[in-house]
Design a protein around this nucleic acid. Sequence first.
DNA 1: TTGAAAGCGTTACCAT
DNA 2: ATGGTAACGCTTTCAA
Lengths: 338, 338
Amino acid sequence: MVSIADVARDAGVSSSTVSYVLSGKRSISPETRRRVEDSVRRLGYHPHAGARALASSRTNVLGLVMPLRPDIDVPVLMGFVTSVVTSARRYQHDVLLVTNDEGPEGLRRVANSATADALLVMDVETADPRVPVLHSLPCPAVLVGLPDDPGSLSCVDLDFSAAARRCVEHLAELGHERIALVGPSPAVYERGTSFADRFLDGFTTAARQRNTHAVSSPCPPSYEGVCACLDRIFAERPEPTGLVVHNEAVLGTLLSELRGRGRRVPEDVSVVAVGPGETTANWPVPLTTVPLPSDEIGRTAVEMTMRELEGTASAEVRLLSPRLVPGRSTAPPPPTVS
Amino acid sequence: MVSIADVARDAGVSSSTVSYVLSGKRSISPETRRRVEDSVRRLGYHPHAGARALASSRTNVLGLVMPLRPDIDVPVLMGFVTSVVTSARRYQHDVLLVTNDEGPEGLRRVANSATADALLVMDVETADPRVPVLHSLPCPAVLVGLPDDPGSLSCVDLDFSAAARRCVEHLAELGHERIALVGPSPAVYERGTSFADRFLDGFTTAARQRNTHAVSSPCPPSYEGVCACLDRIFAERPEPTGLVVHNEAVLGTLLSELRGRGRRVPEDVSVVAVGPGETTANWPVPLTTVPLPSDEIGRTAVEMTMRELEGTASAEVRLLSPRLVPGRSTAPPPPTVS
DNA sequence: TTGAAAGCGTTACCAT
DNA sequence: ATGGTAACGCTTTCAA
């Protein structure tokens, strides 16, 4: 292994000088800098991460806490992960995957063993048991999501309440007076997932304000689940004419089942989907969508983390404003049978 | 931070004894062991990862090299990732995410800076440019996939060639004489993705051996792509009666489009899908499936890595045998119009 | 069965 | 603008 001493010898300087050239923490004569950088390149020197962590108490690693549940929205999750990783690299940081199956002890281990400098936590619940644990750790933590009581932890998320409002308003403006929400799987609600609750709240409230009749129905990720969910919704009288789908996983099945039931989109039913950006494209009718910007959320989470590590900022809750991207899946409701 | 010296003091032993209690590398009297373990628990001691890495030249971290392409199969990828992470934890290892956008230099950085002990590489291509780089690194690497020339690197993957054969045989045994492959996106073929090639090979060869007429058609992940793909397939005369879908992303769209074209599954067309296990469930007709066992592949990759790190095994190529899980989407072909 | 002490490769403080 | 050197917290060899 090539060490800092090798580089120092090769460049004819002391190892501390090499260290300073690399960190930029003190001024170096152009000539020295050049020689050192040459040697670094020529020898293929890479500082030993462990040694560096030991001496500087900084690992340059971010711990990303990932849910392992079967009922999560996989594309959204992957969107976060890639966004976090690429953003972290911009700040010279690597990303370590931490799963939840070690429980709180896993978080303590990673933080207390100086394996990571900070923790990013995904899939946050309303009353998330990890919140108190995170407060007790010697490192900053940023939540992707919004628990009831974040205390002094930073949070980033889409403003799901506003997103729901946006969907309702869009349908209401088109003239829909009876709408329905196809929600996430019951399991997601049962564990009090933060975003699901906030979306449902926003949906219900906005509908009330608009004097729009609204029903909502969780939807399990199976063909039978989708059918049952649609049965429930279309049992309403008169039938809802607008659907808000907050469940990426069943979208395909749902659209296909609507067609199977002889309901055309958007002639008979309007559909707004909330989900990853790609959601729009794959269907016969391009969908009206409120994109879930996992990219921006991940990037923001990393940036907030970096500010906290630098000490240039402290905890903060940031809710990103939703956009509605019009497609051809929403239109005015069919004329009422008189 | 609580260090090994703190524990040693608290337990009334030397720090080397604490180290040995923790590593189990030499025998310790029961009494001493108890006292040390007590102190560890009471003080909440976690060994400093960097210090440990520095002293032992082992980081207990696995680098997982992840593709960032938009055209990968996300659920499959996530399956690997979770499988790798949970398997690694069984061996006391953490997983660091490495993306490809740093290029080969990223691999060198992670390996040469002693950030990870080994590399697991996903999304391997036929002539993968990373293979020579991996050979030059001071740490073992395991490929998920099978390049043309793996040299001395370990590989794990589903035997895609056998998987295709299995699909063809299943359809042939039911009596289908004309079949078609709905393949991955053209982009996947263009970059010479290992599994896509091997599947196509197996498909073509098996069909020839069975005297079955076969066409294959890559399928871009969009509604138009699916339509074009089906147009091409059903332009054959007589029309194919069996479809093998090796493209998880378009499955929903494809099934819905088949229905839209008035083709019933399995009465008019039989469908076999290759993909993650969940693939089966979400459709009106439970699909006949050849599962892609990301779980087993990930676990195997980790185990092979561990063996190599221990030095108890060397490079090896392991191709897992496919299973075919019968559903209700395959049946004998409709009687020929005479 | 245990302890002392020499590294491991950096960083950062104290000099000059 | 640069060099010397004491930490950093652990593992492991050597000694007892």
